[in-house]
């Protein structure tokens, strides 16, 4: 068994490449999901009832779909619409699209829980439209969102492992590759799992740091 870890160590460059892809997919996917999620949250908070309920319906529907299903739908569906992707981009698109729904719901929940008075003060001071959101609403929403966004980022990191099924070269794919070639399943997958653990620990540490900054601003 220890021999297995030696083999994995010899091929640590492959794992490293996998981790870098996992990190890139997670971060870019999360950033896209947060940006689109914020836009969707604005629709979810719209005073227009019909708009609000229909968008809420779409968000709820998305949250009922397993991530792997959406990966397949994007992977097979987009070429059908004439848009051709490589696997990496298809995986990223699925990651961003899927998590947009979760991010929107997180941001909406926090937004609707914030006291409305400071938004009203901004209206009285002449804010309206996009600037009201970018200067007054979302800074407060994001200050309160740290822990929940952190949890979602951990979920995103774990979701990237599904992308091995469409052969995206991420961490689990790299571990699978090493194990298939040298037959060291134990060492290869344990190494991958420990790396996932470390990534999630880093996210949790980051959230704790951000919480300290946010504390003063509430």
């Amino acid at each position: 068994m220890m021999h297995g870890f030696d083999v994995v160590w010899e091929h640590s460059d492959r794992l490293l490449w996998g981790v870098l892809n996992t990190i890139a997919l997670s971060i870019v996917g999360a950033v896209l999901a947060v940006v689109f999620g914020a836009l969707v949250a604005i629709l979810l908070m719209s005073p227009n009832r019909l708009l609000r309920l229909s968008v809420q319906g779409l968000v709820d529907l998305m949250r009922c779909v397993p991530f792997l299903m959406l990966v397949y739908l994007v992977y097979y569906g987009l070429p059908h619409l004439g848009i051709d992707f490589d696997n990496w981009t298809a995986g990223l698109a699925a990651l961003a699209l899927y998590n947009t729904a979760y991010m929107a719901e997180i941001l909406r929940g926090i937004w609707s829980g914030l006291p409305r008075e400071t938004f009203e003060a901004a209206t009285a001071f002449g804010y309206h439209g996009p600037r009201l959101y970018t200067r007054i609403v979302f800074p407060q929403v994001f200050l309160a969102a740290g822990p929940m966004l952190g949890n979602q980022l951990i979920q995103i990191i774990k979701d990237t492992a599904f992308l091995t099924i469409i052969a995206v070269p991420e961490l689990t794919q790299a571990a699978s590759g090493i194990q298939a070639q040298y037959f060291v399943p134990f060492a290869a997958f344990i190494a991958a799992i420990l790396i996932y653990w470390a990534l999630c620990a880093i996210v949790e540490g980051g959230v704790a740091l951000i919480e300290k900054v946010a504390e003063a601003r509430r």
Partner: peptide, 10 residues
């Protein structure tokens, strides 16, 4: 405002 309504993030 009665309840000040300062912007807490600033």
């Amino acid at each position: 405002f009665q309840h000040f309504n300062l912007w807490p993030h600033l």
